[in-house]
């Protein structure tokens, strides 16, 4: 019995393709958790990163928040909040957002900081408003790096969203946790494989987003 055998057995069992515990349903749940967590983290990390990067102020605060957030164990946080507020979406979202904010915040800050100062100086000298400088001069050039921050956040959230199953929610973590509990290794390996595949799909999505959103003048080809 090897891993491939488990994978094959899991995916060829038609029972795994239907119902509330079927692959499509669990996949959809997992995508929803991921998008929600990533969206919340981006809503915090992007504006904060853009603003601190543009003004050059608050760099130390950014570093402090990022380090502190990285030091928190996602699983520990999940259990702690679940105990405090009870089972639900909130105890899942908080650790995922805490996990995703640092890569987004830090890379966005660094990306904007590292934009060549001379076009910024030229734009200011030509009478562009600060908002215009940030969104039309700095952001387009910083975009590849900002996307890479979002990408690493997304990958981490995709793999960590499995913990939602610990507090009775769905997602692909269901297979892993239920499988372990039921000693059904077919299910464990199947769930893990799906998570890995989703991480690869996430990579592909960000690659495509980069192709579409980043100017050829910045990509240099």
């Amino acid at each position: 019995m090897n891993v491939l055998h488990f994978v094959n057995a899991f995916f060829s069992d038609s029972a795994h393709w239907h119902g509330y515990d079927g692959i499509p349903a669990r996949l959809l749940e997992h995508v929803q958790y991921t998008l929600l967590a990533l969206g919340l983290a981006a809503a915090v990390g992007l504006p904060a990163g853009l603003l601190t990067g543009h003004t050059g102020r608050g760099g130390n605060a950014v570093a402090f928040v990022a380090t502190a957030a990285r030091a928190l164990p996602s699983f520990g946080l999940l259990v702690l909040i679940a105990v405090a507020v009870g089972i639900g979406l909130l105890p899942v979202m908080i650790p995922l957002v805490v996990l995703a904010v640092p890569p987004i915040l830090v890379t966005t800050y660094e990306a904007v900081r590292s934009v060549d100062p001379s076009p910024v100086d030229a734009a200011r000298g030509l009478g562009m408003h600060e908002r215009g400088i940030l969104f039309r001069v700095e952001l387009p050039v910083a975009l590849p790096l900002i996307l890479s921050g979002l990408r690493s956040a997304a990958i981490q959230v995709v793999s960590t969203a499995t913990i939602a199953a610990y507090v009775s929610l769905g997602g692909l973590g269901r297979y892993i946790i239920d499988g372990l509990y039921q000693r059904d290794f077919e299910k464990v390996v199947g769930g893990a494989t799906l998570v890995a595949l989703m991480a690869l799909v996430t990579l592909a999505v960000f690659w495509a987003a980069g192709r579409l959103a980043v100017s050829p003048g910045v990509r240099r080809r």
Binding site: S118, P119, V120, A122, P140, S215, V218
Partner: peptide, 8 residues
């Protein structure tokens, strides 16, 4: 160094 906008 001109300071051109490289994305435009």
């Amino acid at each position: 160094n001109a300071g051109l906008f490289q994305h435009r």
